[in-house]
């Protein structure tokens, strides 16, 4: 199972610094070999036979659901790359600035050949600090990419003031409070903060706490968690993209919760970009974890609850115009 090749998806608006980051990944001596699927050939300065050009092709699946889409080009290219398995350790998929990350992510869950040989590691969004505020106004794709990301790189921080940066971070948090935020100039983030994150691994669903406390200090952006920084952040609420966090100490009834979840994603899938959860079922000694992208749900028992661990169920949603009251009531009705 663990011999599946990890795949990192790089999103970000045109000119944000994806190519700079890619060139760093391909040129730095980290001992890992990457196959790279790029959307624009020739931008990569590295001569690498495992750089493959792709034309993004989003295919609707014939199941009556408009959000069940996959990237046909990725299925074809990954199938071809896997004939050269052993020549690379991981795959990076660069998407165009206008790309929707959801079909890319869904490809790993909906295509059995891709899912059998590779696994989605994380979606990384590269954001241009200089232009992100404009893009949030005029480009729905940019907002989608932020909402969807597991890791967000605020790049070109040298071009804006500290006050601007804080506002950018607050705006990003208003859309997606769960992603890891990093600041960078010329994409100079430590690569281990971007690669091999296991963000889609059910075994690793831990990061359900909003990460408001990160990124307060520009000189220690990775792990700054001093609580007083929080007070300095202004809170933004994006008008159409929200996150929703639910929690309860009361054990849930699996016979209510699982059908509710399935029904919810079937109905509200188009609005739900990402969801993650840890669930404590009544009389169940194990934690149940789940995650989803639009209508796709992936869930399993993860591990036994630890001695003294708080048996709390937590669910987080990031989406567009989420029917918040409806979701809250549904969740509360799942109490055993």
């Amino acid at each position: 199972m663990s011999d599946k090749v990890p795949v990192t998806v790089l999103t970000g608006y045109l000119g944000a610094g994806k190519t700079t980051l890619l060139n760093r990944i391909l040129s730095e001596p980290h001992g890992q070999k990457y196959a790279v699927i790029v959307n624009e050939f020739g931008e990569i300065g590295i001569d690498n036979e495992l750089v493959v050009g792709a034309e993004e092709e989003v295919f609707e699946m014939n199941n009556g659901c408009v959000c069940c889409t996959v990237r046909g080009d990725l299925i074809r290219i990954i199938d071809g790359l896997m004939r050269r398995k052993g020549r690379f350790d991981a795959i990076i998929v660069e998407t165009t600035g206008l790309a929707d990350p959801a079909p890319v992510a869904q490809t790993f869950f909906m295509d059995d050949a891709v899912g059998r040989k590779t696994k989605l590691d994380a979606v990384v969004a590269v954001i241009d600090a200089m232009w992100v505020k404009d893009r949030l106004k005029d480009a729905p794709e940019a907002k989608n990419q932020i909402a969807f990301a597991d890791v967000i790189l605020i790049n070109k921080t040298d071009l804006v003031s500290e006050a601007d940066l804080r506002e950018i971070e607050a705006r990003i948090r208003g859309i997606n409070p769960y992603a890891r935020l990093h600041r960078s100039e010329r994409a100079n983030v430590p690569l281990h903060e971007v690669l091999r994150r296991n963000a889609f691994d059910l075994e690793r669903i831990l990061d359900l706490e909003p990460a408001f406390l990160e990124g307060g200090d520009p000189h220690d952006h990775a792990h700054d968690a001093s609580p007083h920084e929080h007070a300095g952040l202004s809170h933004y609420h994006d008008e159409d993209m929200q996150s929703l966090a639910l929690r309860t100490d009361k054990p849930l009834d699996p016979d209510k919760f699982l059908p509710w979840m399935r029904d919810l994603v079937a109905k509200e899938g188009p609005s739900i970009l990402r969801l993650k959860g840890i669930v404590a079922f009544k009389d169940d000694p194990e934690r149940f974890v789940l995650q989803g992208v639009h209508m796709i749900l992936d869930g399993d028992h993860q591990r036994p609850w630890k001695e003294g661990e708080r048996r709390e169920s937590r669910l987080v949603f990031i989406g567009r115009n989420l029917p918040e009251d409806n979701i809250r009531q549904g969740f509360e009705a799942c109490v055993a």
Partner: peptide, 11 residues
């Protein structure tokens, strides 16, 4: 007489 395709869906 017939043309058959295998689809992305299991069909």
């Amino acid at each position: 007489r017939f043309l058959v395709t295998a689809m992305q869906e299991p069909t």
